[in-house]
Structure formats: C-alpha cells, structure tokens
C-alpha cells in the first residue's frame, strides 16, 4: 500500500488574547502517515488534540508549523481556489454532531445540492438526482423517506448516514470521520461504523476515524494512533497496539474501557493528579500521571521509536 497522506511535525498552538494571553499546544510535533485504502483510528480523550488534527488536515484551521502532504503535495501551500477545486473533491469529512451538520433552515437535500453544484457540474440534473438516490440506497436509507425533510424531522442516525452518502457521492480518496457515532445510540452505532468499512472496501477510500472510544477504534481500524495532550504516545497496527500495549497511558486506557465479560477489580480510589501545567511541560506530558515516571521523564520528551515492526511508542522506558 502506498502513502496517501503524510503529516510531518505538525504543531498547532492556540493563543488567547494578544496582551498577556496564554497558549495551548493542542497538537505538538505530530507525524504519521495514512496509506491508500487504510482505516486509521486516532484515539484520545478530550483535550488530546485529535479533533484539531482532523481540522488541520481539512485546512479548516491553519497549523502553527509542520507539513501535510497529500499525494506528495503540501496542502498548506495550496491556494483557496486549489483547495476548492481539487483538494476537497478528494478529501471529505463527516463530523460529530449530525444536527449541527445541517443548516437548520433548509431541507437535508441541500447537503447534496451544494456538493453537486461544485463538483458534479458535468452531470445533468436528472442524473444527479438519481446519483443521490442511489447513494442513499447504498447506505440503507429509503430516499423517499428522507429527501425533502428538514433536519429536525430526522433522527441523528439518519442524518449521519445522509452525510456519509453525501461524501459517497464524490468517492473521495480520504474521509475524515470525526467522532461520527458518539452521539448515536448503541443499536444504530455499529451499522454506521460498518458503512465506513464498506465504503473503504468498495472504493478504496482511506479513512481517518477520530474517536475517544477504544472499542470502536479497535473494531474498525487497521492502524491505531493513541494521543495524549497533543502528542502521539503510541501507534501501529491495531492488533499490536491493543494486544501488546506498551505505553503506560495506553495500558491505563485499556484497563478503563468497560468491556463485556471482563470483570473489573475495584482497586480503591486513587488521588487525582494535578496536571494543569501539562501543556507547557518540557518532558513527557503523561509524566505527572504516570506510575513509572522518573526524573528523566519530566525533563526530556521521549521520541517515538519503533519497538517492533509497525509498532511505535514514545516512552523512556523502551529506550
């Protein structure tokens, strides 16, 4: 499989106020690649920077430094026109909140109209209609039931499917799926997730699946990236990361996931660790919470090293 997207030393610093403001390193020197036809899950808790990375790749926000190469071309150098005419034809997204993803003033059809006006200009009106209906059928919706409806008349699951159908219309090379099932009920969640897999199998689309839910990431993805406070702590083949977690943070996360049929031992209450200054920490950002942290961990940031083939970890313990 060849590389589709390459992220190099990506950093995004949010600042607030221009007099005496503070800064947050939401994404701090992150590098990874997405291969063609690969599903990569980007896993992290709130504040890990996972959503920011998705937005950076979509150029919805500008990075502070670093490069994002799409098929070898730096998208940060692309003009707005180039983005519109070329990049967004190949890179699409579905976001977390289905209800916020539709303009409440218009029927849901607008999502399709906007995209076909820009990208399907050579297709006739009737053909477009048929394409939309076809896309809707492919994701298991009855076109007559949803077309012409306003967003508030449909359920979150239906809306999220419509957005996937919208992306399907363009058959993009990369789909950014940002927490797309977190607001759906358990019984509909897995089917929407399966659509991502089907989508990939059918069109070879790569997917960046951003999630906080480890079990979902494990289920759908080939590669997993675990983030903590803006940095990648561990990444690699999903199977390896989950079966042989190396980083203490990954281990702790896995222990915290409620999994059916795995009994929890109640270990008693542990103190809450202060981590207010973590965004400006020189060393490993997990150090304040890490049970194995040494002095070195607070002073120097560990780099990602390849522990075994296709399994990387950023922890001093493995040097």
């Amino acid at each position: 499989m060849s590389e589709l997207l390459k992220v190099e030393h990506l950093t995004k610093i949010f600042t607030s106020g221009f007099i005496g403001g503070f800064e947050i390193r939401a994404v701090d020197d992150v590098s990874f690649t997405i291969k063609k036809g690969e599903i990569v899950s980007l896993v992290g808790e709130s504040g890990s920077g996972k959503t920011t990375i998705g937005k950076l790749i979509l150029r919805l926000i500008q990075p502070t430094s670093g490069r994002i190469l799409f098929e070898g071309k730096d998208i940060l150098q692309m003009s707005k026109k180039e983005l519109r005419e070329n990049y967004y034809r190949q890179v699409q997204a579905v976001f977390q909140d289905p209800f916020a993803s539709f303009n409440p003033l218009h029927p849901v059809d607008r999502a399709f109209d906007l995209i076909s006006e820009s990208y399907l200009t050579d297709v006739s009106r009737d053909e477009r209609k048929e394409l939309v209906r076809d896309a809707l059928r492919q994701i298991g919706l009855n076109p007559d039931e949803v077309l012409g409806k306003f967003p508030h008349q449909l359920s979150g699951g239906q809306l999220q499917r419509i957005l996937i159908a919208r992306a399907l219309l363009l058959k993009p090379k990369l789909l950014i799926a940002d927490e797309i099932v977190s607001m759906l009920d358990a019984s509909t969640r897995i089917d929407v997730l399966n659509l991502l897999g089907d989508f990939r199998d059918k069109y070879g689309t790569s997917v960046l699946f951003v999630t906080h839910d480890l079990a979902l990431g494990y289920y759908i993805s080939d590669t997993t990236i675990i983030m903590y406070r803006g940095t990648i702590v561990e990444m690699g083949d999903t199977e390896k990361v989950f079966q042989n977690p190396l980083h203490p943070y990954t281990r702790m996360l896995l222990e915290s996931v409620p999994d059916l049929n795995v009994k929890w031992e109640f270990k008693g209450i542990e103190p809450e660790k202060e981590e207010g200054t973590v965004y400006s920490l020189q060393g490993c950002r997990y150090a304040p919470r890490c049970p194995r942290a040494t002095r070195l961990c607070f002073v120097r940031r560990p780099e990602l090293i390849e522990f075994e083939k296709n399994h990387w970890v950023a922890c001093h313990f493995y040097y």
Partner: peptide, 21 residues
C-alpha cells in the same frame, strides 16, 4: 458549526458561505 465546515468542504467560496449559510 459543522454545517459551515461542510459548506467549505463542498467548495463554496467564503462570500457564498457568509450569504448563504
């Protein structure tokens, strides 16, 4: 709001997004 992001991804210009969305 996500729908504004999606309009951007649908290739709409800034002006169209302001006026239409």
């Amino acid at each position: 709001r996500e729908f504004v992001h999606l309009a951007k991804l649908a290739g709409l210009s800034d002006l169209k997004i302001i006026i239409g969305e």
